Computed example of a mutant assay.
Amino acid sequence: MEQVDVAVIGGGRSGLAAAHALRAQGLQPVVLEASEQAAGSWPHYYDSLTLFSPARYSSLPALPFGGDPDRYPHRDEVVAHLRRCAERLETEIRTRTRVREVRFGDGAFRLSLEGGGRLVARAVIAATGTFRHPHQPDLPGLETYTGTLLHGADYRAPEPFDGQRVMVVGAGNSAVQIAAELAERARVTLAARHPVRFARQRILGRDLHWWLARTGLDTLPVGRFLSAPPTQLVIDDGHYRAAVTSGRPDRRPVFTGIDGTKVTWADGSTEEVDAIVLATGYRPDLGYLAPLGALDVTGHPRHREEMSLTHPGLAYVGLEWQRSLSSNSLRGAGRDATRAAQHIAAHLSRI
């Protein structure tokens, strides 16, 4: 059976950052990526996606973004950036390699791969993020809906919804961005259990992320004190607030029932809805760790910041609020990966 130093599961932003940090510790990682390229989920996001953080704050450690550091990179720029990082890593990256399960025995982690392959690793970093595990909340009557139902993970562009009646469920960045884009071609309602909360993208001429970095709020280690992630703020240059204020999209509380394609709203009114887009977030994509007993009953890892609480040689990178508000982002992946690699190196030096 093949033996490796450290197996990094996932070859997106978090996996690449982890591989870079492990090499800095003198370790030889092998990156296992399920898709055909080391760019993680980024090639699969909707076509118009643009970062809310400027390029200067959105680079992985291996390579800074080129061009204007104050611009907001488009999805395709991020994909190209990740590909360049992968090329420069000088680390073995195995694409089309999906990990089916991880077990522990005889002092090492044993990875079973789809297709029958197996690996033995002294340590593991789980960096698979959340995109492949979209969250569908328990909403009244949703299981009976007979119109077009999709998650934000499957949304690409507004053209297929021309002239339709569409509901977008959610109140975060993606929900508002998708709803505003759709509202230019369809009649759209943004439905959520909580109000949309906007944060100004620029304050006193500086981007919000400049202030977060300058004040230290971006790296404040508050993750361990959160029992649940706080309500997401929608970072806005004024465009999205204006769209919602003008009623394109309009804003309503979440529906109270569905019958076929007929939706019942909280005020008792009903109407036909052609399509529902669930922009309701994601959950950790870590099912392959279940045989270890490393997850709780909800599928979340038992961890403290970067390190597993069940296995000293298991670490995580890329979880939402793993350590700070920037953990599940391009700007935060490098910091968390550095800490995880340091812990892994220290652990391996003791065994």
Rank of each mutant, 00 (worst) to 15 (best):
Q3Y: 01
V8W: 03
S14E: 07
L16E: 08
P29T: 10
V30F: 01
E33A: 09
S35M: 12
A38F: 11
A39G: 03
S41A: 15
D47M: 01
S48E: 14
T50W: 04
S58K: 06
L63D: 12
V79P: 10
R83N: 10
C85D: 00
E87L: 09
L89E: 02
E92T: 15
R96H: 13
R110D: 10
S112V: 10
G115C: 05
G117C: 11
T128Q: 04
T130Y: 02
Q136M: 11
P140T: 02
G141E: 00
T148C: 11
L149Y: 01
A153M: 03
G170E: 00
V176W: 06
A192I: 12
V196Q: 04
F198I: 05
T215I: 13
L226Y: 00
P230R: 08
P230V: 13
Q232A: 15
I235M: 11
S246M: 00
P249L: 04
D250K: 09
D250P: 07
D259T: 15
G260F: 11
T261C: 14
T264Y: 01
I276H: 01
L278E: 05
G281H: 06
R283I: 09
L286E: 02
Y288L: 10
A290K: 12
P291I: 08
A294G: 11
P301W: 08
R302A: 13
E305I: 08
M307C: 10
T310D: 14
G313N: 06
E320K: 13
S326Y: 09
G334T: 02
R339P: 02
A340H: 03
